[in-house]
Amino acid sequence: MVNPIKMHRRLLLTGAAGGLGTALRSRLTANCDVLRLSDKSAVSEAGTGEEVVLADLANAAEVDAMVAGCDAIVHLGGISVEAPFEAILQANILGVYHLYEAARKHGVKRVVFASSNHVVGYYKQGETITADHPPRPDSFYGVSKAFGEDFSRFYFDRHGIETACVRIGSSFPEPRDRRMLATWLSFDDLHRLISACLTTPVLGHSIVFGMSDNAVTWWDNSRARHIGYVPQDSSDVFRDAVFARTPAPDLNDPAAIYQGGGFVAADPLKK
């Protein structure tokens, strides 16, 4: 169980209709008085302590209205898989600009930005990296998240908007394959991480790897100790079952060589 400190009056959750947004919806109501849910797609009817504001991230006016009245943002919205660049551009690049401009105009000073492990997907699985390693994105999607990290850094330096760039690994009910034994992040640990980002006294501009307490990992999260995130779950309890149902990796396959897995071979231009 997560027992977050309720520090925000109105918290905005973008991407509320997506997989992680759905998983976090019931959890994040404990972090605020009012949870504002937003997505481009339909969001189910607001419950107690909730409100719904639909917005297309590519539409500046809609994003401005979405952000108005909020005092912190958890930004999960946008495209979360590889896609043609034109689509990525609208949702993940232009959308980030609109979000931070709205935050600046409305005085929002803290954002949790859903970045991705695909910002560093071209590091090898035999390496352990920190947040200080240069980005090596593995896809248009990864490039867009690297842009979001840099853009949020600019808005911190220029406008004082604190951001936690959370490089989410693989957040599912359980690991789906052997790669996810290293990248898995439970839903409860994701909530713990977001809660820590929302409540740490000084966030600054921080890059955090979103992972549970997995024995195998490619990411050193020590640069984020000031946030106070302590994962409680681990992929280790699924290890035997994952090995039993999956074949040994082909070590000549780029998906088994690089941390980004299948993203390094995804081709959104292929018909």
Rank of each mutant, 00 (worst) to 15 (best):
C70G: 01
S80A: 14
E51G: 09
P175K: 07
D189M: 08
P135E: 10
A103F: 09
A164Y: 00
G95H: 03
S206C: 13
M211N: 12
L28N: 04
V2G: 01
K40N: 14
N31D: 14
S212H: 07
D250E: 10
V230I: 15
V208C: 10
V237S: 13
A72M: 03
H159K: 06
A61Y: 12
L20G: 02
A23Q: 10
C197Y: 01
H8W: 13
V143W: 08
E149D: 09
S116V: 01
G262T: 13
T29H: 08
D189I: 08
K124T: 13
V63K: 02
A255G: 08
A42E: 15
D253E: 06
S186H: 03
N92W: 07
H191L: 08
S206G: 09
A266D: 10
Q125F: 02
P4K: 04
S41L: 14
N117L: 14
G15P: 01
R239T: 13
F156L: 02
P137M: 08
H159V: 05
R36L: 10
D236P: 11
V143E: 09
R176P: 01
P4Y: 02
R178P: 08
R10E: 07
L24G: 00
D71K: 03
A58T: 08
A23Y: 07
R9M: 11
G19R: 14
R225W: 09
W218A: 09
W218P: 06
S38W: 00
M66V: 05
H8K: 10
N92F: 03
I79K: 07
S38L: 00
R167H: 04
F187S: 09
V67W: 00
P4S: 01
L89I: 11
F238E: 06
P175W: 06
H159E: 12
M66F: 00
D220G: 07
A65H: 12
P231H: 07
P84R: 14
L94K: 14
S235I: 05
A146K: 00
W184I: 00
E101Q: 12
G21Y: 01
R176K: 14
A91E: 12
C32K: 05
V2F: 13
A102M: 12
I93P: 04
E101D: 13
H98Y: 09
K109P: 00
L99R: 02
R245V: 10
S41W: 12
M66Y: 06
I93F: 05
R136G: 05
D138Y: 01
I168N: 03
S222G: 04
L181Y: 10
P249K: 06
V202C: 12
G260M: 09
A46W: 03
S222I: 01
A42V: 13
L11T: 02
G142W: 00
N92T: 08
Q259G: 06
F140T: 03
S139K: 02
T14R: 01
F156G: 00
V230S: 13
D56R: 02
L94H: 08
K124Q: 13
R25T: 10
M211T: 14
V74R: 03
E82H: 10
S144M: 03
H159F: 14
N92E: 06
L54D: 04
A30H: 09
V96P: 02
N117C: 13
N117W: 11
V208R: 03
V43C: 12
T246Q: 11
